[in-house]
Computed example of a mutant assay.
Amino acid sequence: MASSSVAGEPKQSRPGFFKRSVQFFKDAWGELKRVRWPNRKELTSYTMVVMGTCIFIILLIFGFDLGISYVLELIGLR
């Protein structure tokens, strides 16, 4: 008596793997067509912002590391 569907409702069949895969890629391609892609000037600007942020974070972590190393040396734990 263990049934996965509620009584009275027809069991809906799920499309096969291949059909679902094709539909996924059709939908994804449709979404990519609607994307507003940046022009060269915007892309260069965004790239510079990302690179600047990465360099800033690297220098910040490097500074913290040097500071902590210096403090550990002062208290004799290094």
Results as ranks from 00 to 15, higher is better:
residue 34 R to F: 01
residue 50 V to R: 09
residue 33 K to S: 05
residue 12 Q to N: 11
residue 40 R to I: 06
residue 27 D to I: 08
residue 3 S to K: 13
residue 40 R to E: 13
residue 2 A to C: 01
residue 33 K to Q: 15
residue 70 Y to C: 05
residue 54 C to V: 15
residue 12 Q to W: 02
residue 75 I to W: 06
residue 18 F to T: 12
residue 62 F to K: 01
residue 42 E to L: 06
residue 71 V to W: 07
residue 60 L to H: 08
residue 1 M to T: 15
residue 71 V to F: 02
residue 61 I to L: 13
residue 5 S to E: 10
residue 20 R to L: 08
residue 68 I to R: 00
residue 45 S to N: 01
residue 35 V to G: 00
residue 49 V to N: 03
residue 59 L to M: 10
residue 78 R to H: 12
residue 68 I to E: 08
residue 75 I to F: 09
residue 8 G to N: 05
residue 15 P to R: 14
residue 6 V to F: 11
residue 10 P to Y: 05
residue 37 W to K: 07
residue 29 W to N: 14
residue 52 G to I: 09
residue 38 P to K: 12
residue 30 G to M: 03
residue 70 Y to N: 09
residue 74 L to K: 13
residue 71 V to N: 03
residue 49 V to R: 04
residue 65 D to C: 15
residue 77 L to W: 12
residue 2 A to K: 08
residue 27 D to A: 02
residue 18 F to Y: 13
residue 28 A to T: 06
residue 51 M to V: 12
residue 43 L to C: 01
residue 23 Q to M: 10
residue 21 S to M: 15
residue 10 P to Q: 15
residue 45 S to Y: 04
residue 52 G to A: 11
residue 17 F to E: 06
residue 38 P to E: 08
residue 78 R to V: 07
residue 69 S to V: 05
residue 8 G to Q: 04
residue 34 R to D: 02
residue 66 L to R: 02
residue 58 I to L: 12
residue 16 G to Y: 07
residue 1 M to C: 11
residue 72 L to W: 04
residue 56 F to D: 04
residue 33 K to G: 10
residue 15 P to T: 09
residue 30 G to W: 03
residue 52 G to N: 15
residue 53 T to L: 12
residue 22 V to Y: 02
residue 44 T to C: 06
residue 63 G to I: 10
residue 47 T to V: 05
residue 39 N to Y: 01
residue 74 L to H: 05
residue 55 I to F: 10
residue 44 T to R: 04
residue 37 W to Q: 03
residue 32 L to H: 07
residue 30 G to P: 04
residue 55 I to Q: 06
residue 77 L to A: 07
residue 1 M to W: 10
residue 14 R to L: 15
residue 57 I to S: 04
residue 74 L to Y: 06
residue 18 F to W: 07
residue 3 S to T: 13
residue 68 I to M: 08
residue 33 K to T: 10
residue 40 R to Q: 12
residue 44 T to W: 03
residue 8 G to W: 02
residue 42 E to C: 01
residue 47 T to W: 04
residue 59 L to D: 05
residue 55 I to W: 06
residue 53 T to V: 11
residue 61 I to N: 02
